[in-house]
């Protein structure tokens, strides 16, 4: 009975995360309209309605919406979410604000496979390329993760990751240098990262992975919160740190590999979405940051892709260029603010 006297501190989760989440869902919903309507040809709401819900409309716009714009939008949404989640997983588990999927060597492995297929004209059906890229990405990711397995020092983990990635990138470059100008142009587009011309086949390659990996990523929230307190503290609180970090790295590779295989290495989304999410939420609590970073990743990638399609129309600039052009400065501003508040 006497225990009842002790104060019970209930954490106020507050309205903010729900508000932020709700607004982002609304934003994603609103993005559907420009994503499906804008471009060439520009469609009216009425036409869109006809195409989507009445299965009518003229043949060409109908095809453009259902076979090009819809898969592209969907791919942008799921790829963005995957990148955002992978960013949170890696940044929190490695306690490194600059950690991203690049560290896992997944994109380099996928790029190396695509480069080899293109330059050496390996006899694979064109439709097989993303699958092979996926295998390449997963394999190089496994190599990096296995190399990282026994390392406990966060800085050294990042170094091992970037060393192996640099090596794989050198392989990519050397393969490219052997290629004809035409091959180089094709590879160039892949290496920049793009959503252009991705059909339902690509979407079908990506979504099964994410259906499995996204819920698993969200389940890591409590462990990530412990890992933020340092390895010793986390271990002392009952977490098997090395095993958990290994699983989290595997999960990140699973999230990113299919995305990279299909879209190429799209930079900055994985870096930016988590930082923005923490900033907006005002907390590092992974239970809130994970879902919000996923929504932000989707929104950022779809918006960047709209820019890619429309800004210099009819020329299309790869979405990877936009994420870097816009993402870089935004990240700088975020980090500057963080440093300023850290100094106080």
């Amino acid at each position: 009975m006497s225990v009842a006297a002790t104060p019970i501190v209930r954490k106020r989760i507050g309205a903010r995360p729900w508000l932020v989440g709700g607004l982002l869902v609304l934003l994603l919903f609103l993005l559907i309209f420009p994503a499906l309507m804008l471009g060439s040809p520009v469609l009216s709401l009425g036409q869109l309605n006809e195409i989507l819900f009445l299965n009518g409309g003229e043949k060409v716009p109908h095809l453009i919406v259902t076979e090009l714009r819809m898969p592209r939008l969907l791919l942008g949404l799921i790829a963005g979410a995957a990148l955002g989640l992978a960013g949170v997983l890696l940044q929190d588990s490695l306690r490194n604000p600059l950690a991203g999927p690049e560290l896992l060597g997944v994109s380099s492995g996928a790029s190396a496979v695509v480069a080899a297929i293109t330059v050496f004209r390996l006899p694979f059906a064109f439709g097989l390329t993303p699958w092979l890229a996926l295998v390449g990405g997963l394999m190089s990711g496994m190599v990096v993760i296995l190399a990282m397995r026994r390392i406990t020092n966060g800085a050294r983990l990042a170094l091992v990751g970037s060393a192996i990635t640099a090596l794989l990138n050198a392989v990519v470059i050397s393969i490219i240098s052997l290629g004809s100008p035409n091959d180089v142009a094709v590879l160039y587009l892949f290496l920049l990262g793009s959503l252009a011309g991705r059909t339902w086949d690509y979407v079908n390659l990506v979504w099964p992975w994410l259906v499995v990996c996204i819920p698993l990523a969200l389940l890591c929230a409590r462990s990530l919160n412990l890992l933020q307190l340092g390895d010793d503290m986390a271990e002392g609180l009952g977490l098997k740190v090395l095993r958990m970090r290994f699983l989290i790295a595997l999960l990140s590779a699973g999230l990113v590999a299919s995305v990279v295989a299909v879209c190429g290495p799209i930079s900055y989304i994985a870096l930016l979405a988590p930082h923005l999410a923490r900033r907006i939420l005002g907390t590092s609590d992974a239970r809130q940051v994970l879902p919000v970073a996923a929504l932000l990743g989707s929104a950022l990638l779809v918006m960047a892709d709209l820019l890619a399609r429309l800004a210099l129309s009819p020329v299309e600039m790869p979405v990877g260029v936009w994420t870097t052009l816009v993402g870089g400065p935004v990240l700088l501003v975020l980090l500057r603010r963080q440093m300023r508040s850290a100094k106080q």
Partner: peptide, 16 residues
């Protein structure tokens, strides 16, 4: 166990 130099992410409250 309270280790020597535990780290806390920015903004973490005492309650959290």
């Amino acid at each position: 166990v309270l280790p020597q130099a535990p780290t806390a992410p920015a903004g973490l409250t005492v309650g959290e």
